[in-house]
Design a protein around this nucleic acid. Structure first.
Length: 271
DNA sequence: AGTGCGGCCTGTCCGC
DNA sequence: TGCGGACAGGCCGCAC
């Protein structure tokens, strides 16, 4: 399930194979993604060279000369680079074919992802416009989080997973970061001290960074652009460990479905 | 305006 | 062994 580390792993994996290459063809086998793949993509992208690849939150941006290919992997999407053509497998919905015969192939069984063609300033696109700060940017600070939290009596975990506050922190990494910072996921956001937000900021960065180093987290189906799974799952301390012993205090990891999907925590270590 | 929930999908797992 | 149903999960869109 791609969160920021999985998307960044994918970006780093594909960049050497697409940067500077010219697109010769776009093949849409099934346009029925979260939003239909626009016809303009196959019509306009061919002939253009890909420049930089970027990431904004969990969106991948492939900048072409006169537009941007905007891709989201949803929860089951992956991108692979093929050296040459091979028969598409089930759920291989989209190919971008390059002038050296390499193919960027989009695979997404659940079709929660999207592939859009954006002209003009991509940052102003409605999907990106209202996104919160990047966790690795200077804007992600304890002061910023405390400020956001001031009007939020709801659970701190909900705020952490709110993409209009900070991007890229999905369910897995929210659970892990709150455990590392010793903050109870049910605690009201406006009742977390500034010092503890400072700790949370550090742990979010450390955990996301470590997950990127390990190639992401593979629980069911995530694979990087080379087809390899990620290895961060081995380092998860609370996620998917309900009923198992806390690695810090030996207590039992609890599972609460109350907030935004499955919430795992240690009731002794997190307050 | 923050918050929670339904819905979109399909593969996987569980119980009968 | 077969099959229905619950579940997972990002995130938009909507209701409150």
């Amino acid at each position: 399930m791609p969160e920021l580390p999985e998307v960044e792993t994918t970006r780093r994996g594909i960049e050497p194979h697409v940067k500077g290459k010219r697109v010769v063809r776009v093949i849409v086998r099934d346009p029925r993604l979260r939003w239909p793949v626009p016809r303009s993509l196959a019509r306009e992208l061919p002939g253009q060279r890909i420049g930089a690849t970027r990431r904004r939150g969990k969106y991948l941006l492939l900048e072409a000369e006169h537009g941007t290919l905007l891709i989201h992997l949803g929860m089951s999407g992956s991108l692979r680079v093929l050296k040459r053509d091979e028969p598409p497998r089930k759920h291989d919905h989209l190919d971008v074919v390059f002038d050296d015969s390499a193919i960027l192939r989009y695979h997404d069984p659940r079709r929660f992802g999207c592939a859009l063609w954006v002209k003009g300033e991509v940052e102003r696109h409605e999907l990106l416009r209202d996104l919160g700060v990047e966790p690795f940017s200077d804007a992600f600070t304890a002061e910023y989080l405390a400020g956001q939290a001031a009007r939020r009596p709801g659970p701190v975990k909900s705020m952490l997973m709110d993409g209009s506050v900070v991007v890229g922190v999905g369910n897995i990494y929210a659970n892990e970061s709150l455990f590392a910072a010793g903050i109870h996921p049910h605690r009201a956001a406006n009742r977390v001290s500034r010092d503890r937000y400072a700790s949370l900021v550090e742990h979010v960065r450390r955990i996301l960074g470590r997950a990127i180093e390990r190639g992401g987290t593979t629980l069911n189906d995530f694979v990087g652009s080379d087809g390899e799974p990620g290895y961060f799952a081995q380092e998860l301390l609370v996620y998917a460990r309900a009923g198992e012993p806390c690695r810090r205090c030996g207590g039992t990891i609890a599972l609460s479905p109350r907030i935004a999907r499955a919430t795992y925590f240690c009731g002794r270590c997190q307050r």
